[in-house]
């Protein structure tokens, strides 16, 4: 159960689906060592000196991009942020051309976010640089899944055997997808909950309990993970109103009381207060939402370190 790989097999991190348990353990263990760097007076190590990392964001992001950028800077990489408005990009050829042009600058790694599921896979096949998926469409957001697992492990000492409730917009959430893949691999018992209109089919095949009753999902849980209602991805009425959503699915102090007394409350951010989560819960003592942000930097440092080595992804220039 607790075996640890000595390396990641691929040059890229495209999704949790490609990782086995020993690789996940390697990333989480490395992140523990990386977290210590943030407690030093000089929060920087020379590890990736002389390496270039390009953050290529085809979708707006503040939190994830900032987190990657800090991780890169703490490892002494040279970073370049490129934000490309969706409207200016025609999918397919242009995406590849953009990446090939950037690759001519000889980056070691490109961190890519794109609105289309699978965009990172396409780039990974084309580019010699390592590709890190920072969120592709509704597909995966592997570093978010890893930082969530890191936070649970840090607080609970383990992941296997824990009951974890995930509540919210399951249909549009790449965070949800990465999390269920990761947490079930590590042996957690996942209870997914949301309105039927936001529930993807086939959850039982992934080993996930699906329910539309929040109380059932939260009952006796060790961790409660709230997902954001992604209004920008919704075309059509998935539920009558935000107020009704909060009444039926919002995480209130009363609902939290159904979970274990030491249960932790998580949210990948940005939060819609009063929609999926009550402010008393978000700011309460059980909340680890800000720890997730801190841990995100350590996990991303670990991923960059593990992918930048080996030299296979070095572009000879």
């Amino acid at each position: 159960m607790s075996e640890t790989a000595s390396r990641l097999r691929g040059k890229d991190l495209l999704g949790i689906a490609d990782l086995d348990v020993s690789e996940i353990n390697l990333i989480l263990d490395t992140a523990e060592a990386m977290k210590e760097v943030a407690s030093r007076p000089i929060k920087k190590v020379p590890t990736l000196r002389g390496k270039t990392v390009i953050n290529l964001f085809f979708e707006p992001s503040t939190r994830t991009r900032t987190s990657f950028e800090i991780a890169e800077k703490r490892l002494s990489a040279d970073t370049l942020n490129i934000a490309i408005a969706m409207s200016s990009v025609v999918k397919g050829e242009t995406l590849i051309d953009t990446a090939l042009n950037l690759e001519a600058i000889a980056p070691a790694i490109m961190v890519v976010r794109h609105a289309s599921s699978g965009a990172c896979h396409l780039l990974a096949r084309t580019c010699r640089a390592g590709i890190v998926n920072a969120g592709d469409g509704t597909h995966e957001h592997p570093t978010q899944g890893l930082l969530d697992a890191f936070t649970i492990r840090e607080r609970k000492g383990r992941i296997a055997g824990l009951k974890i409730a995930i509540v919210g917009d399951l249909l549009h959430s790449r965070v949800f997808r990465s999390n269920i893949l990761l947490l079930t691999k590590l042996g957690a018992d996942i209870w997914a909950c949301g309105p039927p209109t936001l529930m993807p089919p086939g959850l039982d095949r992934l080993g996930v309990h699906a329910t539309t009753r929040v109380d059932e999902a939260v009952d006796g849980a060790d961790a409660i993970m709230m997902l954001r209602i992604q209004l920008e991805r919704m075309q059509g009425g998935f539920f009558p109103s935000l107020r009704e959503y909060f009444t039926v699915f919002g995480m209130t102090p009363e609902r939290v009381r159904l979970a274990k007394p030491d249960a932790i409350i998580m949210h990948p951010g940005p939060m819609n207060r009063g929609v999926e989560i009550a402010s008393e819960v978000a700011d309460g003592p059980a909340s680890v939402i800000l720890d997730q942000v801190t841990n995100g930097v350590a996990v991303r440092m670990a991923v960059l370190y593990l992918l930048a080595g080996g030299g296979e992804n070095e572009v000879a220039a």
Binding site: S6, R7, T30, A33, T47, A302, G309, G310, G311, E314
Partner: peptide, 12 residues
Amino acid sequence: LMKHAVGPQPIV
């Protein structure tokens, strides 16, 4: 650290 042509990164 980054000199090896192949091989795993040392464990941190």
